[in-house]
C-alpha cells in the first residue's frame, strides 16, 4: 500500500481554543498544559506545524506524540 503525502491542504487545528468559543469538549494540548500557556498549536495553515504533531486519525482525532517529537519530522 502506498501512502501519499499531499501538500497544500488548508489545515488549522489547535486544541487551544478558549472556553466559550466552541460548544463541545476539547482535550487540552499537553505541551500547553506542561508549560501553563495557550501559545502552542498543532497546525496553523501557512505558519507552523507542531513538532509533536503525529497525524490525524479519521475522522478528526489529533495524534500527539508529546513529549516525544514526531519521528518522521524532517524526512
Amino acid at each position: 500500500m502506498t501512502i501519499r503525502k499531499l501538500d497544500g491542504a488548508n489545515m488549522d487545528i489547535d486544541l487551544a481554543t478558549p472556553g466559550g468559543s466552541i460548544a463541545w469538549q476539547q482535550d487540552a494540548c499537553p505541551w500547553n498544559e506542561a508549560e501553563g500557556m495557550l501559545t502552542h498549536r498543532c497546525a496553523v495553515k501557512n505558519i507552523s506545524i507542531c513538532p509533536y504533531f503525529c497525524g490525524i486519525e479519521y475522522l478528526d482525532k489529533v495524534l500527539c506524540c508529546y513529549p516525544n517529537k514526531n519521528p518522521l519530522k524532517g524526512i
Partner: peptide, 9 residues
C-alpha cells in the same frame, strides 16, 4: 475551572 467548555469563561 471555568475556562473550558461547558463553563462560561
Amino acid at each position: 475551572d471555568s475556562t473550558k467548555f461547558p463553563w462560561l469563561a
